[in-house]
């Protein structure tokens, strides 16, 4: 639940989602669900030379299970809030 809530608060911000097949997509976080499926808007592929077939894709849904990393905006991370949430989660939240 921790990360679902966290990503919900991040809606509207720019993130870079890196997939398990090494494709990295940057875009505005539109929505997220409990599986951490992600919908991005105004997307662009980070390495366009390597993945030219994605040039015309502007919106996309990403299945949560294919995500490796999400690079987060530095001002979207409240470290103290995260620590508290993580401890609560560890206690069985």
């Amino acid at each position: 639940m921790l990360f679902f809530s966290y990503f919900k608060d991040l809606v509207g911000q720019e993130v870079t989602v890196e997939l398990k097949n090494d494709l990295a997509i940057r875009g505005t976080l539109h929505s997220v669900d409990q599986y951490l499926n992600i919908k991005l808007e105004n997307t662009r592929v980070v390495d366009q030379d390597k993945y030219p077939h994605m040039l015309s894709v502007r919106n996309c849904f990403i299945r949560g299970s294919v995500v490796r990393y999400v690079q987060l905006p530095p001002d979207g991370v409240d470290v103290d809030l995260l620590h508290d949430a993580a401890r609560r989660e560890a206690r069985g939240g």
Binding site: F3, L82, E89
Partner: peptide, 13 residues
Amino acid sequence: LHAFDQHLNMILG
């Protein structure tokens, strides 16, 4: 390590 859950999803800085 800033956050984690039981799946070992994590946020690192």
